[in-house]
Amino acid sequence: MKIENENIEIKLLLEAMYLKYGYDFKNYSKASIKRRILYRLSRSGLKTISEMQHKILYDKQFFEILIQDFSINVTEMFRDPSFYKSIREKVIPVLKKLPFIKIWHAGCATGEEVYSMAILLKEESLYDKTTIYATDFNEGVIKKAKDGIYPAERLKEYTCNYQKAGGKSSFADYYSAKYDYALINKSLEKNIVFAEHNLVTDWVFGEMNMIMCRNVLIYFNRDLQTRVIHLFRNSLCKDGFLCLGSKESIRFSECSDDFVDFVKKEKIYRKK
């Protein structure tokens, strides 16, 4: 009974968020969304999700807090080093032949992986002819991404990832550390365009040579995943690359035939 009511309340809450603020979480995987709602509920002093729905409608600040809860920003520099190694060894030689390169990093969160790609492109002498579009639905994280300031305590891990990913220089060349923080070199930001874009409600904005969207689709249900894969197909030029997270796939979707596996293990696809 309690669970049944909770599920109804969650549906109503998501509908309210959509109608009031235009953010659509109705096609997100339910179990994960529910955990995040209950987490916020337990810290809010509110008794039920219905009370939370009321608060969302009348208290924009509370809505902003919940939006932060909904947006998964767990990321790191050179996350999954073997993926970046494959990009360096297999994809870069193809990109080198192009006169200019457009990369879309969809769901970039706080930007660590965007700067990782920028470093890689710099080391391969491709940075100056590349534009990276780094987007997220969450305005707050876009701002953080733009700032490029990260806790120094993670530098050791990032350095290790950088080396495993085949880094050609010293990772310390790319940031300056001060107090407890590391500031990413501003020269890496020059060709990055940070912008808000919502994969649920927005559509194509350019023709890309490569799209990175890793560990975002796992939070969507099949209907929404299908929409986003369509969006990616339509946003890629012929022979463009699509990079997903290691446990994500396009093989369930009707767009499957439009792509070939390029590096199967790393979920790097290439559009036909």
Binding site: S29, A31, S32, I72, V74, I218, Y219
Partner: peptide
């Protein structure tokens, strides 16, 4: 069905 998350 099963779903995955890379949350904290």
């Amino acid at each position: 069905t099963l779903s995955l998350s890379t949350n904290k």
